[in-house]
Amino acid sequence: MNARRVCRFLGLLAAFAAGLVPALASAQGAASAWPARPIRLVVPFVAGGGADVAARLIAAKLQMQLGQQVVVDNKPGGNTLIGAQELMKAPPDGYTLLWSIDQTFVLNPSLYNRLPYDPRKDFTPVALAITSPTAVIARTQAGSVGDVHELVKRARAEPGKINIGAAAILSQMALEEFNRSAGIEITRVPYKGSAEVAQATIAGDIDAAFDGMAPYVQFVKAGRAKILAVTSARRFSGLPDVPTLDELGYKGVDFSVWFGVVGPAGLPPEIAKRVSDGVDWAIRQPDVVEKLLVFGFEPAAQTSVSALKGRIDSDLVRYSPVIKKLGFKLD
């Protein structure tokens, strides 16, 4: 390179640096001043449901930590696709965040052939917030199964004749993995929603259910239903006497619903860290924990940015082959 070209290159480099430094300073300044106005938390669920209630509980505490109002904006529909796309329209300035379920990030990529987003590239993980295990539930009337071992014993004696209800895709996946682990052939009876599964369980239309716990709380309190086991890696804190399937000897059946907060791609790390710290504080407040347990939720053990990113990465790898095996598709 001759002297003229060297001088020209150095001039261009200096000009680039002169423009870059103020831009970086401006971005850093904006992050340090954040939040200067209310924050919108997009919730891709209808108002009043368990997911929405949990979001509002956390939003109320989060605004105490951040010093700005956190406004919940419900954008339900499309298996959370509508809410996810709403976030993608927002600038990465920390004033629009998304509260969402694992469905958005680790189930939809395998359920849709043409997903309008990339779960790894189009979002910034912020905080893993709460989890909820799938439960094995049976009615308490005479003739119903007393525990998981009895359920397996009956299934082995009558292959294909034991009927188990499940609605959510994660619950259906957990049931299929339980079949595999126990070496049995339980018939999976799909339902549109958990309310239908709960009613069928209590009515005796099915032998048991693999489902979330919230719809069964009233029946358990009334002595009409019992939780036989949970599918999480550890016991649910709200039911410390209920064993996990792993403890009972049925390995690999670890399926828990989780909710978390994400931002748009390019969200500054400083803002993500502040929100993550705020969420961690919020979910550990006694009044929040008490209310979450009613809906079958509990605080996540780890809530950091890296914890959520790691959960997304690991669940994408783990769930994809199970969904493919079961042939689930939504488009």
Results as ranks from 00 to 15, higher is better:
R274Q: 12
A127K: 04
L245T: 01
L13G: 12
G77Q: 15
G67H: 09
N179G: 10
T80F: 11
P269I: 09
F255Y: 12
Q65W: 04
F259A: 12
G327H: 14
G278R: 03
D313H: 01
R180S: 12
A229L: 09
Y216D: 05
F219W: 03
E196S: 10
D241P: 00
G278W: 01
L10I: 15
G183Y: 03
V71I: 15
K153S: 13
P190N: 10
I186T: 03
G94I: 03
S314K: 05
P92R: 02
T96E: 11
L316F: 01
E176Q: 14
T104V: 14
E158Y: 09
T104F: 06
G77D: 14
P133M: 04
S171N: 13
Q141R: 09
L81G: 11
V148K: 02
A222P: 05
R274L: 06
I271W: 00
V21L: 14
I169D: 10
Q65R: 09
T187Q: 10
K324M: 12
I58M: 09
G48W: 06
V106H: 01
P44C: 14
R274Y: 05
G266K: 08
V72I: 12
V261R: 00
F255M: 05
F297Q: 07
Y191R: 02
L293H: 10
Q172A: 09
M213I: 10
R318F: 03
I169N: 05
D207T: 04
E150G: 15
I202D: 01
A54F: 04
Q172S: 11
P38L: 10
D277S: 08
L62H: 07
A167C: 05
Q285H: 10
T140I: 07
L292E: 08
Y250G: 08
Y216K: 00
V220Y: 00
K89T: 09
L128G: 06
S181P: 09
I283W: 00
R311W: 00
P92V: 06
L87H: 01
E270M: 11
T303R: 04
L98P: 03
G212V: 03
P116R: 12
Q85V: 12
P133C: 05
A47M: 12
V71E: 12
D315L: 08
M173S: 11
Y95C: 06
L293D: 06
I323P: 08
N74Y: 08
R156E: 15
Y319R: 03
P91K: 12
A307Y: 06
G238N: 07
P159L: 06
P116Y: 13
R56L: 09
A265Q: 11
L170Y: 07
I271Y: 03
L66Q: 12
S32P: 00
Y117C: 14
G19R: 13
V152F: 02
D277N: 13
